[in-house]
């Protein structure tokens, strides 16, 4: 019951369950995306086992139309998640200042983690778009082409001073860290809200999983650079 009902709050009432559905959808979209992220990283990490396995998996995903269906579906879930989770973030300048001031004042661990989640959300949103653009342009994905991309340096053009910088490697390292941070703590927050587990223990389990995935990611990136050194002669 609201104290003062105006036209807007009165009409909002008639939507009844909207807030529930939106909240559920936010949690579900988050769980789907972290599931996707972890699966994706495990798939990428097959490069550590062998480039042949990586290629076989990649070819299999294409052959059975899993990539063709999975990628657009993931993009749709990402867009939905941006809208649903984004509405929780302090978007107005006034709210942003209030949230930032409170976070600084309290210096409370979980509040800092949450602030980090808002910031990494922005990074993930931008970097995922770039990532998608790059890989869709390089389709089909194979160990050799991926290795060449990871190891590429640029711009190496005389008009730009001819310097070499591993843009892609740096991009992937940052993307891996912000992605796993956002996803890992995102799943933590979903589980905290629904309250099935004791949150401190659950937090450590998720941190453990995240560290494993990040290490796998770094190992995969290293393996790609090593494959690139051998000239991509892998088959």
């Amino acid at each position: 019951m609201e104290l003062a009902k105006n036209l807007q709050t009165t009409l909002n009432r008639s939507y009844g369950k909207t807030d529930l559905y939106v909240d559920l959808a936010q949690s579900i979209s988050g769980v789907i995306l972290i599931g996707f992220l972890w699966m994706h990283m495990l798939f990428v990490a097959t490069i550590v086992v062998s480039p042949q396995l990586f290629d076989a998996l990649s070819e299999g995903l294409d052959k059975y139309y899993l990539a063709q269906v999975g990628i657009p579906a993931t993009i749709i879930v990402i867009i939905i998640h941006i809208f649903l989770a984004g509405r929780r973030a302090p978007l107005r300048l006034r709210d942003l200042r209030i949230a930032w001031r409170l976070t600084n004042l309290m210096n409370h661990y979980d509040t800092w983690i949450w602030a980090g989640q808002v910031i990494t959300a922005l990074c993930v949103g931008i970097m995922a778009s770039i990532h998608l653009w790059v890989i869709l342009g390089a389709w089909p994905l194979r160990a050799a082409t991926s290795a060449a991309r990871v190891a590429s340096t640029g711009p190496a053009d005389p008009t730009w001073g001819g310097f070499h910088f591993p843009f892609f490697l740096v991009f992937y390292v940052i993307f891996l860290l912000v992605g796993e941070y956002h996803g890992g703590f995102g799943l933590y927050r979903i589980l905290v809200k629904w309250g099935w587990f004791e949150r401190h223990k659950m937090g450590w389990v998720l941190k453990g999983i995240t560290v494993i995935i990040v290490v796998l990611g770094f190992t995969a990136l290293y393996t790609f650079t090593q494959i690139a050194k051998t000239g991509g002669a892998i088959h």
């Binding site: 939106v22 909240d23 661990y109 509040t111 809200k193 309250g195 099935w196």
Partner: peptide
């Protein structure tokens, strides 16, 4: 459904009420 799950409430409650459990229970 407005709770974001930051849990500063649970950590800072002077009465140490198990707020995570209670909030999740209602949710």
């Amino acid at each position: 459904f407005g709770c974001v799950g930051i849990m500063a409430c649970a950590d800072l409650c002077p009465m140490e009420i198990p707020l995570q459990e209670n909030l999740a229970f209602v949710r």
